[in-house]
Design a protein around this nucleic acid. Sequence first.
DNA 1: AGCACGCCGACT
DNA 2: GTCGGCGTGCTC
Length: 745
Amino acid sequence: MPGVATNDPGVGDEGDGQLTLGVEDARRAVRGARARVRKAKPKAQAERLPVARVVVDKGLVHLDRLFDYSVPAKLAEVAQPGVRVRVRFGAKVVDGRRQGGGLIDGVIVERVERSTYGGPLAPLASVVSPEIVLAPPMIELARAVADRYAGSLADIVQLALPARHARAEAEPSGEPLIRPAPPPPGPWTRYPTGTAHLAELTAGDSPRTVWTALPGPYWPDEIARAMAATLAGGRGALAVVPDAKSVERVDAALTALLGRGRHVALTSGLGPEERYRRWLAINRGSVRAVVGTRAAMFAPVVELGLALVWNDGDDSHADLNAPHPHVREVLAMRAAREHAAFTVGGHATTVEAAQLVRSGWARPLDADRAAVRAAAPLVRTTGSDLDLARDEAARAARLPSLAWDVARKALQTGPVLVQVPRRGYLVRTSCLRCREPARCAHCSGPLELPSGDGVLTCAWCTRPAPHWRCRVCGGERIRAGVIGARRTAEELGRAFPTVPVRTSGRDAILTTVPDLPALIIATPGAEPVAPGGYAAALLLDGWALLTRPDLRAGEQALHRWLDAASLVRPAGEGGTLVVVAESTLRPVQALVRWDPQGYALTELVERAELNLPPVSRMASVTGPPAGIADFLAVLRLPDGADVLGPVPVAPTTPRTPPPAPAKPDPRAAETRAELTRALFGDTPPPTREPARRIAPPTRHERVLLRIEPGRGAELAHALKAAQTLRLARAAGDPVQIRIDPPDIG
DNA sequence: AGCACGCCGACT
DNA sequence: GTCGGCGTGCTC
């Protein structure tokens, strides 16, 4: 619609002739339009396309239907597809008149000539603003993502749209900037096809690549250059990275390359106003380059030319909210729909990325072996055998002698990174003699060593176990398996008393550390960058990462090691990496050979043989046994799909933690006590348990569904149909559907 | 999910 | 006779 482009705030009648309104005028116009509509009980419908199909963001979102509303003549022009509206929803018709029904938010998906709904249509209550926040291509994407993940359109719309902020919307977003000159290839010259790839992006081609980044600190710059090359060709670019720290680094690289104002960063840390301001600048085409975390995957970059995801194996790329769309999948869908280039990059290669190459959908973008060797540190492996540690201090710090030697030497030339498992201070325990895991005598839960004095405590029932004895061999001495960051820091500090020790973890993340001798203890993902590279890194979490009973344990261990290893100086400059893990394990060998692609490919072949994802498509359904049984009875599974299970699982943690049991109001208790005394004297009445509203911890079951490659859509569709059917009649225990479950054993 | 209609027990 | 329990079904 011509009058309602970008930031023109005109609302309602084009006939007003008020096309250049001030903010206040616009507000008044909106209020006026609303008031008129409400009062006039609009008999006057829009002449053209009088029906608006609306996705409402409340109510029966599970049913995933659009609702038709009549478009009042006053809103005929402004009620375009993609604008936010307010509608009455949930009203009852009592002898021909609507009653009740609250105003809820929605977005117009399309305007049509007539409704397929039999009943009378309610009118749109108002158009919130003329801003087109969800243009038809975005709606189509949302629809496709919802289908892919067996979710509803409303779910995706909610993920894709930031909260509106009126003040931010009233501001102009600035003129689209002149396209920059193509950037020099910089570090991309280290890749045989790097320069050519940038040229393709600038030329308007849309290559799809799986980029295995060389070790070293250059990847933010490489991402920025790929984005700049795309901008130089007149198209927009979007990069999604796992965390705010990475956003900062790419942001800085973009600023160095493009200056300020041509790009924008989207992170969850922004306030609502600033978030919406930046989002609008993108939506209005004022900014064409975007770097952000997960939620930015839906950023409405105008004329998208490149969609890039960095480190697609990182957990944070799977959305926390149902239906849990994954950045890699969404960006791949966007790239295909919007004819944009697509890059999945990282130091590691995921099995999913390897499959994109193997299927021919994408091509590799890597360096040759010589370049890898020139950039990677020397990788050495060692067992965790402490008995071999000659040095008393090393033994105390639980450092294998190799790690000790390497660290001591490296500390003469620079900082040393120590990667430890997450989970702060807790220590898993086992029998020192026979390695049987130490378990609670009461409930068989795992015993842990909390901070400080270290009294063994059960992780499940919290009972202390001061006099533990091994059930198998009768041993009485405990072996601490995984040591958290804080404790490691303490112990290393004692082992290297002259060197400063700093930690970086979940709660306090360091971004950079100076190029000075220091021990930097960090958990995976929280490793600070040393500008000149670490002199050495010790990866102490080998078995913690590898013993997880997860299909992806090996892949994730390799991913974390490679990320840490990429911060170390090249071998030629003395950079050394020590990984404490069994050297025959495949991920360890892949690290030593620096061969993430080979590892991913081997893994992919194996998954294909075992009919495992991502070659086969899987979904899980979780819930109480009765719900699962009922769901399966209702489910019309496509031919050839497998049903695995159901098997019991730990109850799924609700998305929002259940509210703490309401504290009884002391006054109410007092009154009740008084009443009780009055009625029964001093003898308390027989306590009758009030009807328990809180269900006892129900046992949950999970069933896995599997279907052959290429038929994932059928499976998702069938699951959604069953879910919809059950929800529509509100029958039985609810179950949760998850496409591509992340944690299959 | 709300919210209203509906058809059976304890109160004025 | 009415008030109200929450079982069932709809929401443009």
